[in-house]
């Protein structure tokens, strides 16, 4: 994902394109890293846990909508589950974005697939979606820079129980209820 975004930035922006050059190689890397986006999705689809997470990400509760509207959503007053509504939204937007970028990318890569005006349309869509997804990713990275605990969660798949109680109380309760024998449950597989 980062590779395809970086090469996209190089292909698109003159102040990067001229110093980097090598347009043909950059293009090949961009195309293949784009196709490679499918691999983690396919790998995930065979995992039961991953499919379970997808189910959680898909569903929005009434509390989720309240959370999104609230200004003080991070204070924990509206308890959220394993994924907060922002994460659900980001997952949906990213997935939709990837689907659209892949589809339009394929149309652009195989020039004989559709008629010319559709191909122009595909590059138009590809450009705007890439801009939007790029901003979405840059925004998330800059927020992640400020939260070491959630970074650790994404890297190792584990977070502390205290952090889980603060940020994802319903999920912390859920995990605690499933493992009553353990004194201090350690929720795993959390993301920030």
């Amino acid at each position: 994902m980062l590779t395809s975004l970086t090469t996209a930035a190089i292909l698109y922006n003159g102040f990067l394109a001229v110093p980097v050059g090598h347009r043909r190689i950059v293009k090949v890397v961009h195309v293949y890293s784009g196709f490679a986006l499918l691999l983690p999705i396919i790998a995930g689809a065979v995992s039961r846990t991953y499919r379970g997470d997808l189910r959680r990400l898909n569903r929005f509760t009434k509390a989720d909508w309240r959370w999104l509207r609230s200004r003080t959503r991070r204070d924990g007053a509206i308890p959220v589950g394993k994924f907060n509504p922002g994460q659900k939204l980001n997952a949906a937007l990213s997935t939709g974005g990837i689907v659209v970028l892949l589809a339009t990318g394929i149309v652009m890569y195989y020039p004989d697939l559709v008629r010319l005006s559709w191909r122009t349309g595909a590059s138009f869509v590809h450009d705007w979606f890439a801009l939007a997804i790029g901003l979405l990713v840059i925004g998330h990275i800059s927020y992640a820079m400020r939260d070491p605990e959630s970074r650790r969660g994404m890297r190792t798949g584990r977070v502390s129980a205290a952090w889980a109680r603060d940020h994802h109380r319903m999920w912390a309760d859920e995990v605690a209820a499933q493992a009553p024998a353990t004194a201090a449950p350690t929720p795993d597989e959390a993301t920030g």
């Binding site: 898909n58 569903r59 939709g96 659209v100 349309g121 590059s123 138009f124």
Partner: peptide, 26 residues
């Protein structure tokens, strides 16, 4: 609850498809 995630993904795919067809004139 409502499957908002799926709706967003399908919605974006729809926008993408419409964009391929109409994007060049837009």
């Amino acid at each position: 609850d409502t499957p908002v995630g799926r709706r967003i993904v399908l919605g974006l795919a729809g926008i993408g498809l419409a964009g391929i067809v109409a994007g060049s004139s837009v």
